[in-house]
């Protein structure tokens, strides 16, 4: 559909839209494809006129009467088209389907569930006070001394079910509100992450966004206390029972580390989204990066590269002025950690593995060393691959 060629004396067809009024702006969009825009109040009012079946010309006349100005209707229709809000000619609007698992989402955050979560948490804390052997400590990671591969395998694969549970809780807290979600793998600096896409949250009132954002960390706490409770009767045993108890504690400590990782808010973790929601921001990280790039381009005289600050919301601009320094400091600290800890550790681990390889070249030992190296460096290498792919995609998009 070409907005310029639209007959302005015929009503338009629009997809089912959601409207959320917040202060001076209205978030309008389509829940089925998660396409949302922040409209000024007059723009949202004009859109509502079109939605009721008024022709664009009639709506423009109404706008003129209401606001005393002539609206650029063709340009407004181009905006609606860019957000895919207009139904193209010859296309039917599919019925909006209810999301799956909404019932489970409601059950997991029902009053009964909250009571059970509270009891589990209290029982876990009491167990830690009564049984010092199950208190989380970094030594719990070393649950076996039989094989380095078994140790690395246990710590990497042992997190998989709890990561999926973390992401499922985000998704189900979203489903409870009737929102679509999807799971993918992405990267945050040199960390590989699992991501739950919940763009529909921008269309629900802010106070309802907190639970879906915090649901993952909530379940992390429950996993730590649950695994700790499970380890209590096992940890002082011999044989397999003792091994199982130690493995449960290793998984609990790994979960605790992932919980702590959420405090790296500048990597756009769950706590970043929580903070930006509280602060009333829209896309703080992008604005902070844009602000930093503008400053750098200004310094090197590339004024043609500077992004117009008017494209950012006033609140984002206001917060980004101080957030940008937190973000830069955060990245600097993580870079320092990479140079002083991760890379030296990687070199040392590789040295040990290569030494072991040359001391015994039997197929079993080669396999042992290979698996060990993959487990240790797989994540860093995958993060590197994702970074290169992302850079290429951005370069290609800019070139086009």
């Amino acid at each position: 559909m070409d907005a310029a060629a639209v007959d302005l004396d015929r009503p338009l067809r629009l997809y089912p839209l959601t409207f959320l009024e917040e202060g001076d702006e209205v978030t309008v969009g389509r829940a089925d494809i998660d396409s949302y825009g922040l409209f000024p109040a007059d723009g949202a009012a004009l859109l509502r006129r079109l939605e009721t079946g008024e022709t664009p010309n009639d709506a423009a006349r109404w706008y003129n009467t209401q606001y005393g100005e002539t609206v650029d209707m063709v340009e407004f229709l181009e905006v609606l088209e860019a957000f895919e809000l207009l139904v193209p000619d010859g296309e039917e609007v599919a019925e909006v389907r209810a999301v799956r698992w909404q019932g489970l989402g409601k059950a997991l955050f029902s009053p009964v569930a909250w009571v059970l979560y509270g009891l589990l948490f209290i029982a876990g804390i009491v167990a830690m006070f009564r049984e010092p052997a199950v208190v989380p400590t970094y030594q719990n990671i070393f649950f076996t001394s039989s094989s380095l591969v078994a140790l690395a395998l246990g710590n990497v694969l042992g997190q998989a079910p709890w990561i999926l549970l973390h992401e499922s809780y985000h998704a189900l807290a979203g489903r409870r509100l009737g929102l679509n979600s999807s799971l993918s793998i992405g990267r945050r600096f040199y960390y590989v992450v699992f991501l739950t896409k919940l763009d529909g949250l921008v269309a629900v009132p802010r106070r309802k966004r907190y639970l879906p954002m915090l649901a993952g960390m909530l379940v992390d706490v429950l996993v730590v206390t649950g695994l700790t409770l499970g380890a209590v009767p096992l940890v002082s045993s011999d044989g397999f029972a003792g091994f199982l108890g130690r493995f449960l504690l290793a998984m609990a400590f790994g979960t605790l580390l992932r919980f702590a990782w959420q405090f790296y808010f500048f990597l756009r973790t769950d706590l970043y989204f929580l903070a930006t929601t509280v602060l009333g921001c829209n896309d703080l990280q992008s604005v902070a990066k844009g602000m930093l790039q503008n400053r750098l381009y200004g310094l090197i005289g590339r004024r043609d590269k500077i992004v117009d600050a008017e494209t950012w919301t006033p609140r984002d601009r206001e917060v980004a002025r101080w957030y940008v320094w937190l973000m830069v400091t955060g990245y600097a600290v993580l870079t320092g950690l990479l140079i002083t800890a991760v890379i030296p550790a990687a070199i040392r681990i590789t040295g040990l593995a290569v030494g072991k390889l040359f001391s015994d070249t039997s197929p079993l030992n080669v396999l042992d060393v290979t698996v060990f190296l993959v487990l240790n460096f797989g994540e860093l290498i995958l993060a590197g691959i994702l970074a290169v792919r992302g850079y290429r995609r951005r370069t290609l998009a800019t070139a086009n």
């Binding site: 340009e75 992405g186 590989v192 991501l195």
Partner: peptide
């Protein structure tokens, strides 16, 4: 002519570190 400026809404990606 009054132009109506519409900004793109931010995205929400809730994360968990993959593992170390």
């Amino acid at each position: 002519m009054k132009k109506i400026v519409v900004r793109k809404a931010g995205t929400v990606r809730l994360t968990s570190a993959a593992t170390c």
